[in-house]
Design a protein around this nucleic acid. Structure first.
Ligand code: FES
Ligand code: FES
Lengths: 162, 162
DNA sequence: AAAATAAAGATATTTAATATCCTTAATAGA
DNA sequence: TCTATTAAGGATATTAAATATCTTTATTTT
């Protein structure tokens, strides 16, 4: 079980969009070039973010994407779920129902204890992702990345932002 | 991202093995029949448990599997990792290295901040799984499952245990 | 009017999950 | 000793998901 690489792409794209001045847009082309990603396929990830309502889009020349919310209002979970979907990572196929000893009309009252534990773990994962905001990420990146690289990256982006 | 169905199978099989009297073994055939699973494929999941050292095996007629540890010594994480592997659910492809603004000789000192958060969430998931023992599961199942079904299931198992 | 863009659908391609089959070695029981 | 049964592991097939590309359409800026 491995998350789609689109998760990494979407998170990095949102980190870039978080630094975009108000009212400006950045195109798929620029985001793909900046991260070295296939433009057409990255587009699918950005469409997911758009459908989830986390980015606004603009058509035509100088169009592209900008965040629909402030970085403090967006969490890792929002972004991960936008591209991975909201369904749980553990699916119970109810194999307990195949128990040959079961009375024929028997029906479970509650989800299987195995599934409940797996779902609690899934929820712990989501809770952690929910606790980190996009603004937290940007703060960390600002510390991690050398100031000159940070600066030149934003200049690169602004040159291409419509 | 969805866990393999083998995870559900392995957890349920371990729950059954946990109730097996000392020194007795239960075959793949019996476990597959009890859970309504394909015998040959279930065998792969049980082999994973065997390779991880969580079950002992016995060959020949009346052979099969038994737990290699007490139910209190086995956690959900042990079983999940045995079949899913221990590698993290988020893989960083280091797309930050494609930043066109980067100096040519530039090399990161630490993992990307994005990956660190994703790995913390992965660890939160594992920590939750680590906190639940197989013995806890058996206790819960004993409460959930009607006493007569619980009893007849174990009789079914004992009839087939070598 | 022309160029650039997001959106969405169609379609490959590649990889992982699921499943079956077969052979081998070990072992219990007749 | 012989036979049936079992786990282990390798080979292979099938199915589903992830990855990737291409095309068309509607929109918008210049
Ligand atoms: S029946 Fe699905 S987890 Fe127990
Ligand atoms: S480069 Fe991989 S998560 Fe940032």
């Amino acid at each position: 079980m491995i998350l789609k690489s689109q998760v990494e792409w979407a998170l990095h794209c949102c980190a870039i969009l978080a630094g975009l001045p108000d009212g400006r847009y950045l195109s798929t082309k620029a985001l793909a070039e900046f991260h070295g990603l296939p433009k057409e396929y990255l587009s699918k990830a950005l469409q997911s973010l758009s459908q989830a309502g986390f980015v606004h889009t603009s058509l035509g020349p100088s169009g592209g994407y900008r965040l629909a919310k402030t970085p403090a209002e967006l969490t890792f979970l929002d972004i991960v779920e936008a591209v991975e979907g909201k369904s749980r990572t553990f699916v119970c196929n109810n194999i307990r129902a195949n128990n040959p000893c079961r009375p024929s009309g028997y029906c479970e009252s509650s989800p299987c204890a195995v599934a409940r534990v797996m779902w609690e773990a899934d929820e712990a994962w989501r809770q952690k992702l929910r606790s980190v905001r996009l603004s937290d990420l940007v703060e960390t990146l600002a510390k991690d990345i050398p100031a000159d690289l940070w600066k030149s990256s934003f200049e690169w982006v602004l040159e291409r932002a419509g």
